[in-house]
Design a protein around this nucleic acid. Structure first.
Lengths: 214, 214
DNA sequence: GCGCGCGATTTGTGATCACATCCGGGTCAT
DNA sequence: ATGACCCGGATGTGATCACAAATCGCGCGC
């Protein structure tokens, strides 16, 4: 245990973090309805923290609010998916470019390791494992950009796509080796910013192209 | 009154909308502390809706939460301002480009009218009026892009910059005529997408360049 | 068999209370 | 004069309750 850090987070924050993580990696299918009392019961807290956590997630787009106040995971329209993909395609290359000058060898090495883990998840047909590792791969790179506001904005986009991505990757059985990721690593090693931007953009748009067609 | 729409919004939503609008146009200075009981009292509601509205605004970055849970308008660091400006410079040209094919004459005419209103606000040294009209100008254009997710994301960026922009425009007395806006209108009339992207980017980066130096 | 309406239950909203903690100001000792 | 210290008010957090509205399911009528 490295836990000298046993700070006591508030109830609504633990609930928030937990739900957020589950939504981002696609543990919940699109359109899954949630209830305040249900969440409160599951986490052994009262309704108040559940309300705050849900409200927060709704504000981030991780959950949608029906007209009557009912809350559920988002079931995105094709148009919305296209928009979110376009946002990823705008922001991620920028973050990668900013990370590039700071991407030393140890980072690239760790990225390659994570890439292997992604291949494992694909092998095992583990959809949420695949999504989790894939996001970890991108996040690890973008963290080097030293741009917390950009990264936060990007993560809210990932959040919104979480349930939908799961619904997709759960359907397509064909294994998709991290082809573009290798291009990303090559561009990083070469210090080639234009190539990096292209590789990132290709990775993002490739992964999301199938979502609308299905 | 066109108000056939007198639907009854929930208390926390009216409070949310009101606060959000005030923050976005810079009515509140950076670092202004707010209290749940204070807000609840001002809006004649109990603490519960105030808490939800505040939680929502915190999630959007419109308010910041101190370690002890205290809430205040954000006092942005220079780095963060640069990031948010970069995000605007990425997203806004894209939205403008998507709006361009749908920008018919009536829209351009209305934009020109709003441009005049901006000039008025500058004349009167009305900082919040200037910010409000400026954002209205951009929003009116971007609405034509039919990209609600992108626009929503952009508005959260505007939100975060609200108090800071006010602090800036309140300081610089020199009148800043909407020079770039005329370039935007010209590009729209000519249907010239590259020129439009450049004009938008220039407008955004120009307006925010001073924020770090001051 | 199928659609419709009605009632019981579920669910979100808002109010209020108890409590731990934090912040500010005043006091006292050095 | 200045620093630490301490206490009282202020503040956020969480729990619980009352209430209105929406939803779902069942039974009736067609």
């Amino acid at each position: 245990m490295t836990a000298t850090r046993t700070a006591d987070p508030t109830a609504h924050e633990t609930l928030y973090r937990n739900l957020r993580a589950r939504i981002m990696v696609g543990e919940l299918p699109p359109g899954k309805p949630l209830t305040l009392r249900g969440l409160a019961h599951d986490y052994h807290v009262s309704m108040t923290p559940a309300r705050e956590a849900v409200r927060r997630l709704v504000a981030e787009g991780a959950l949608t609010l029906s007209a009557s106040g009912r809350v559920a995971t988002p079931a995105l329209s094709d148009d919305r998916i296209e928009e979110l993909a376009a946002l990823r395609a705008l922001i991620e290359p920028e973050l990668a470019a900013r990370a590039l000058p700071r991407a030393h060898f140890a980072l690239i090495d760790r990225l390659a390791t994570m890439n292997a883990r992604i291949a494992d998840a694909v092998e095992r047909h583990d959809a949420v494992g695949y999504i989790r590792c894939n996001l970890d791969f991108h996040r690890m790179l973008y963290l080097r950009a030293q741009a917390p506001a950009m990264l936060a904005m990007l993560e809210t986009i990932w959040l919104q796509l979480g349930p939908t991505m799961r619904a997709l990757y759960g359907r397509v059985r064909r294994n998709e080796p991290p082809r573009h990721h290798r291009m990303i690593l090559a561009a990083l090693r070469a210090g080639d910013e234009p190539a990096l931007r292209l590789a990132i953009r290709a990775d993002v748009t490739h992964g999301l192209r199938h979502l609308t067609g299905a």
